[in-house]
């Protein structure tokens, strides 16, 4: 699986918005996703997120991630089918394994919820510069710099980590260690051969990074800030629309819309 989580330069309207506006939008998407459990409402939310991805011009990059998320959603539906027995039966897989409407709806809802939330967050990451995120988190949202750096370093490490996994896997398979067999017991054992060196190498890398941060004066006292960000009209309107939507959604939800009775 490949994860697209890094800034892609672009000139779309989404790119030019301030991180704060985008963070608020992402949060609203997440609130909406959690608020509703009707598959149709969630589908609409999901498509609205896709539309934003399209406007930002990052839809293409997200395809592979979407595929993985889609697969994961299918698993969620399957799990629901296995464990939800109530409700109207659509059809039977076997005599003892009915597929109920509830199960399909619930699974679909969960899948869509997850996809909408993850995608909106990825769109935020793909259209926002690393440095702007740090600045927004520390300056606008007043989060402590240490925590922001832990978070950002974790993100920075994703590609490194994926690359390390690949290298360790290759090194072990070159010693005759088979990682693609079918026997789960053998497989678990084989993965110890990947996990252990990976942990050790990652610890080495983390130590090196910490050392580098020290020598660059990290955490030495008051910092300055390269560029302050100002909210533009477009930003403000996005924030306004997002918050309005959220309020509207909460009201609608309180009045009984958007829920599916299981």
């Amino acid at each position: 699986m490949t994860v697209a989580n890094e800034y892609i330069p672009g000139n779309s309207p989404i790119h030019s918005m301030t991180p704060l506006a985008k963070i608020i939008w992402t949060s609203v998407v997440m609130i909406l996703a959690l608020l509703f459990n009707h598959p149709l409402y969630l589908l609409a939310l999901f498509f609205s997120v896709l539309l934003v991805a399209k406007i930002a011009g990052v839809l293409k990059v997200l395809i592979s991630t979407l595929k993985s998320l889609f697969l994961f959603s299918l698993i969620l539906i399957l799990l629901q089918v296995l464990f939800t027995k109530e409700g109207e039966v659509i059809f039977y897989i076997t005599e003892y394994l009915p597929v109920t409407k509830n199960a399909v709806y619930l699974g679909t809802a969960m899948g869509l919820r997850m996809m909408a939330a993850v995608l909106s967050f990825l769109i935020f990451l793909l259209t926002t510069r690393f440095k702007d995120i740090i600045q927004t988190l520390t300056n606008n949202l007043k989060l402590p710099i240490d925590y922001v750096f832990i978070f950002m370093t974790a993100l920075r490490f994703i590609p490194t980590f994926l690359n390390e996994i690949k290298q360790v896997k290759e090194a072990q398979s070159c010693r005759g260690c088979s990682l693609d067999g079918w026997n789960p017991l053998v497989k678990i054992k084989a993965y110890a051969a990947v996990a252990l060196p990976l942990v050790l190498v990652s610890l080495q890398k983390a130590d090196k990074l910490a050392m580098a941060m020290e020598t660059r004066g990290c955490g030495s006292g008051p910092r300055t800030c390269y560029r302050e960000q100002k909210m533009s009209a477009a930003d403000l309107s996005l924030v306004f629309i997002s918050i309005l939507l959220a309020v509207f959604a909460v009201l609608a939800r309180l009045n009984g819309y958007g829920t599916y009775q299981y």
Partner: peptide
């Protein structure tokens, strides 16, 4: 042919030994 099988014909030693020691 699988890599793990070819390993008996072609041995590959990587640059960083720490990627395999456990």
């Amino acid at each position: 042919v699988k890599v793990s099988e070819l390993a008996q014909k072609v041995g590959y030693v990587f640059q960083n030994p720490d990627h395999q020691i456990f």
